[in-house]
């Protein structure tokens, strides 16, 4: 109930609970005292917000901000080139891997085995083995 009284002071109670609190307040002097205390304190703090000033001259403070803005803008200009290079770094191996996968897939397999999720080592004598798991929907091409 104490937190309800605080919420009442802060205007955070829905109307039904606000009415219940008001009814309770009329017969509870201690609750009224708490509500008044909370109101006074809140008003006191709000109306005496500490005044703190920047401990630097206008010119110095602004120059620091301007420097950071310039730096961020220079980085922004540099970023597209770096971003493209970053992509290239991934693109080259990705294209290579894709090419290998295509070659392997298109190449007629000398032997294909379908295993239910396990690999039979006896089959590895061949130079190309395909492991396929229907249940998992996975196909692996193994090339010696």
């Amino acid at each position: 109930m104490t937190l309800d009284l605080q919420a009442y002071v802060d205007g955070e109670l829905p109307s039904d609970r606000r009415q219940a609190v008001e009814a309770m307040l009329s017969g509870d002097a201690e609750a009224r005292e708490l509500v008044e205390g909370l109101r006074r304190l809140s008003l006191l703090v709000r109306s005496h917000e500490p005044e703190i000033k920047v401990p630097a001259s206008r010119e110095f403070y602004w120059s620091q901000i301007q420097k950071q803005i310039d730096l961020a803008e220079r980085e922004e200009i540099r970023r597209p080139a770096g971003f493209a290079l970053g992509w290239l770094r991934w693109l080259v191996p990705a294209v290579g891997a894709a090419a290998v996968a295509v070659v392997v897939t298109l190449r007629p397999s000398r032997e294909e085995v379908t295993l239910a999720g396990t690999f039979d080592s006896a089959q590895t004598e061949s130079s190309a083995v395909v492991f396929r798991s229907e249940s998992d929907g996975v196909t692996i091409h193994w090339i010696d």
């Binding site: 009284l5 201690e30 708490l34 205390g37 006074r40 304190l41 006191l44 005496h48 500490p50 005044e51």
Partner: peptide
């Protein structure tokens, strides 16, 4: 938990303080 009373026996604990002093005290 939360107790009901605020420990403010005085109805106005900061009465008589100058505004600047009050701000400083609150800070």
């Amino acid at each position: 938990g939360v107790e009901r009373q605020l420990p403010v026996a005085d109805p106005n604990p900061t009465a008589g303080l100058e505004q600047d002093e009050l701000r400083r005290r609150i800070d």
